[in-house]
Nucleic acid binder design. Structure first.
Length: 584
DNA sequence: AGCCTTTGACCAGCG
DNA sequence: TCGCTGGTCAAAGGC
């Protein structure tokens, strides 16, 4: 189903060399390393990591000890710790200007099959969507979830959950998310080395650095770095699109579009169907990208009140985003340029930054499946599990729906403490610990090039929620096994506010040992405590990783900010945390 | 005229 | 095989 235009020329990479394992599993590239190259690269990456980032840039591996295979994968590409710290500081400083309060309003989950943006209960995302086009109910005390399911499988979900009772108005307005790809790219460059997702970056988007290295992109970094969470997504975003959009200017707002017209995420969509799904009175609309031969579709679910409750994207755009529609409306491009210049110089205006963050999110999510979706046109001759992937896509979709229905939030974090910092105070009242080890295995089974005998499988990154199975015919057998301490299996928290019965249940995601699932029960009947510190979780004795996060109150409103928790725990690496101002 | 939405019908997967 | 369900098609109509 893919008559796709040839991919745009990829700029020369300035990125570190691909990790060996990555290149093993990407199936990209014709030249396969020999076994010695393979092995030596794997192990040499240890030292590389130490020199270049210490297995996750020091953040991932604060201690000594054996470097895990995963660390090899990640750390090999990491920045030096100091550099990371600098970036984190920059993010925080910038974020300080815009976020009214903290809380892991949005978290980006792992590439584990399910990456989820979350907006915790009671925390209004209006700061994020503080714009004419994005309207959240002021009284909303629900659990809005921006859900991104990003599987290695190429199907992702970008969903916005809302409270059916309180309602959540969400609208993709025209031009509201005008973040340029350069901004995203700049963020990527600034952030990519932090994230486990870098694996995917290099797997799928090997050319970010070149784009981001432009001076313009660097300029954008200052204004966009506070949306580093987006960068995490951009890390795995559609690089092709990024290249296309490199000259794109930021956009201004327009009058909010009707609530039931969600589609303006920069692309043009044609509605081709509508269904009422079982278990919900809400209709689900089906949209196709109107660009010829573009396979991207999206489903938009509505709530009873007509508001959009979920947006699910499928596929990857094989074209650039259409020109700004507003240009047709006669809006002065000069004005836009002015605005953009101002933004570049002084930082994006808060409101717009918020919107752009979302836009970037949306757009980048649209590209998440780059290289994964079987529709994306990236041929992978060694890929053998299309059927399996297809099956998993379905599962992911179901998972998403469950997530929305059950207010389940899958989020990767360094510790439970991060999950607690959602704007409310929680008291831990129970925990179930399963003190076992889980073995993660990484295996490469292969045979000589000229043999027709068994061609083995490569299996990687169970802990990251994705499995790569690539038939290889030119490798010797390699096998790695490693065990990881498991996170405590279950923790139970209660909201400490008097009379509030909201409970939070944190558990490890079975599908991804590095991710945890947070289940909220009930709704807060109060606003989040004002000015509370991130570490004020009552009764929580767990060590905090918040040292790098600025208190929410220290940030001004209308700004989306990302802070990153450090990676003190090797097994718990956050992709990033976006902080959104809380609705006042 | 072109693009889009609407909507009933159809199809495929699944239990 | 049948019914359910989700997804898609395509004709009709609106803007």
């Amino acid at each position: 189903m893919s008559s796709r235009p040839p991919p745009p020329p990829r700029p020369h990479l300035s990125l570190p060399p691909r990790s060996t394992a990555e290149s093993l599993f990407t199936g990209v590239g014709d030249a396969s390393p020999g076994p010695l190259t393979l092995a030596s690269a794997l192990f040499s990456s240890d030292s590389d990591a130490d020199g270049g980032g210490g297995g996750g840039g020091g953040s991932a591996s604060s201690g000594s000890g054996p470097t895990s295979f995963t660390q090899l994968l990640i750390g090999n590409l990491s920045q030096p710790p100091q550099q990371q710290q600098q970036q984190q500081q920059q993010q925080q400083e910038r974020g300080r200007g815009g976020v009214a309060r903290a809380g892991p309003a949005i978290s980006v989950a792992p590439p584990a099959g399910a990456a989820v943006f979350t907006v915790p209960p009671g925390l209004s995302p209006s700061g994020l969507f503080d714009s004419p086009g994005l309207i959240f109910s002021p009284a909303m005390v629900c659990t809005p979830i921006l859900t991104l399911l990003l599987p290695k499988l190429g199907f992702f979900v970008f969903a916005l959950a809302y409270s059916p009772l309180r309602g959540l108005n969400f609208n993709w307005n025209h031009g509201g998310f005008g973040m340029s790809h350069q901004q995203a790219l700049a963020q990527v460059t600034a952030q990519a080395s932090h994230s486990p997702l870098r694996m995917f970056d290099h797997i799928e988007q090997p050319s970010f650095s070149a784009a981001a290295s432009s001076s313009e992109a660097v300029q954008h970094m200052s204004s966009a770095a506070n949306m580093a969470g987006m960068s995490e997504m951009a890390t795995i975003s559609n690089n092709d699109n990024a290249a296309f959009h490199s000259a794109e200017a930021s956009q201004r707002y327009q009058v909010p579009a009707p609530v039931d017209k969600p589609a303006d995420d920069g692309y043009n969509w044609r509605k081709y169907g509508q269904k009422v799904v079982k278990g919900s009175d809400c209709p689900r609309s089906y949209y196709k990208c109107t660009h010829p031969s573009c396979p991207v579709k999206k489903k938009v679910e509505h709530a009873e009140d007509g508001q959009i409750s979920e947006i699910i994207y499928k596929g990857k755009h094989n074209h650039q985003r259409p020109p700004n529609k507003r240009a047709k409306d006669g809006n002065s491009s000069a004005a836009e340029h002015n605005e953009q210049s101002n933004d570049t110089a002084s930082g994006l205006s808060g409101v717009r930054r918020d919107q752009e963050a979302v836009y970037a999110m949306s757009e980048q999510l649209s590209g998440l499946s780059d290289g994964d979706d079987k529709d994306d046109g990236e041929s992978r001759p060694n890929e053998v599990d299309n059927g399996e992937n297809d099956c998993k896509r379905r599962n992911i979709q179901v998972s998403s729906q469950k997530t929305l229905t059950e207010s389940k939030i899958i989020v990767q974090t360094t510790s439970e403490v991060d999950l607690l910092d959602d704007g409310y105070r929680w008291r831990k009242y129970g925990q179930k610990v399963k003190d076992t080890l889980r073995q993660r295995e990484v295996k490469l089974h292969a045979h000589g090039t000229n043999t027709n005998e068994h061609v083995g499988e490569a299996k990687l990154g169970i802990a990251y929620g994705f499995e790569e199975k690539r038939k290889r015919n030119d490798y010797q057998l390699l096998e790695f096994c490693e065990s990881y301490d498991l996170f405590p299996e279950r923790s139970y928290y209660k909201c400490t506010f008097a009379g509030c019965n909201v409970r939070k249940h944190i558990e490890r995601a079975s599908s991804d040992p590095k991710a945890v699932i947070t289940t909220y029960e009930g709704k807060h009947n109060h606003e989040p405590p004002v000015g509370r510190g991130s570490n004020q979780n009552a009764g929580n004795s767990a060590p905090s990783n918040r040292s790098q996060q600025k208190g929410p109150s220290s940030m001004s409103s209308n700004q989306t900010s990302l802070t990153r928790t450090d990676f003190s725990n090797n097994n718990q690496r956050p992709i990033g945390v976006l902080q959104f101002k809380r609705e006042e």
